[in-house]
Structures are given as structure tokens and as C-alpha cells.
Amino acid sequence: MTVKQGSAAVCGKRNRDAAKGGERNEMELCFDAVSSNESFARVAVAAFVSHLDPTLEELADIKTAVSEAVTNAIIHGYENFYGYGRHGELRPAYLTVHPGKVRIRCVLEGGVLHIEVSDRGKGIEDIDRAMEPLFTTRPELERSGMGFAFMEAFMDDLEVESEPGRGTTVRMSKKMDAGAWIDSEE
């Protein structure tokens, strides 16, 4: 079985210089639900906001939140998780890679970054339960169950919409002007 490197389609990045305050800027990404695309997704979103001169903390926060949301879509939505074989090779934990796409939509408006990560995977049965820190439906994967907790901690706002069997959409937003609190933190 081969793992296909996702075919990433980038469409419609406009208004490159949308300033902090005013203009609206939007981008959309759609890629295969495979774990090698996790780093691509978070770096792409970070690059999208780079012209706003974000602080390192802001960039790290955004990357972590995107990484959590995309990883959730891949391993829970589409159940594509990976392990390593005897010789250190990356291979899917199941024999087949479940086909599916993860979609990211980013909107910059009024100095606020809105990120929407959606999949058409299996959905979440109980969203409140899923959002509890340390709760996980897959303890055998040795993950921490901190995904949603991290998204909440690193973004200003988090909203989850899901329907079992239909998919999940995670919406988060963050104000891109954190200079003040960064200085006061230490």
C-alpha cells in the first residue's frame, strides 16, 4: 500500500496587502487527509498571515491550533493514522488509507484571523465530551486528548459543528494584535 502525498490545491489568494485594519483577505486550501500534510497546512496558514508581522508567539499559537484541528480531521474524521514498521518506515495503521480531503478556509478581516477546518469524515458523537481535556476516543494511539484544549488556549474563539456520518467543522479566530500582552507576560 502506498501513501499518496496529498495533491494540494491552493486557490484564490488575493489582496496580498490587506492591512491590519481594513481589507478582507481570504484563502482556501484543500488537501488529502494524510499525516504528511499536517506540517504543510500549519505552515501555509502561518505564511498567509506573515505580512501582518505577527510575533513569534502568535505564529506558534496559530500553527499549533491548525495542527491540532487538521490532525483531528485526519485521525478521527477519516481514521487515517500511521505507525512505523519494523524498519522504521512510515505506514498506515490500517491496510487502506481512507480517502478524504481536509479543507481549510482562512479569512483575515478587521485584523482578526478566522480559520475554518472542515472534513467530511465520521463526525463527533458528543462534542462536549470531545472537548474535555484528556478525553480521547482512541487511548491506544497514546495521544494526549488535549487537541481542543490547545485550540481553545491558543485561539481567542473556538466553535465546533459536527454531525455523525457527515463531518466536522472547526471554526476558530484570533485577533492579530497581541503585542501588548506579550510584553506584559514576563
Partner: peptide, 14 residues
């Protein structure tokens, strides 16, 4: 350099 789900299984197994 980057610790994410993609790398995690390898590190844990090793």
C-alpha cells in the same frame, strides 16, 4: 525540529 502526529509514532516506538 517539528513534533507532530506525523513524527510521534516513530519517536514513541523508538
Amino acid at each position: 525540529e517539528e513534533v507532530d502526529h506525523h513524527k510521534a509514532a516513530y519517536i514513541s516506538a523508538g
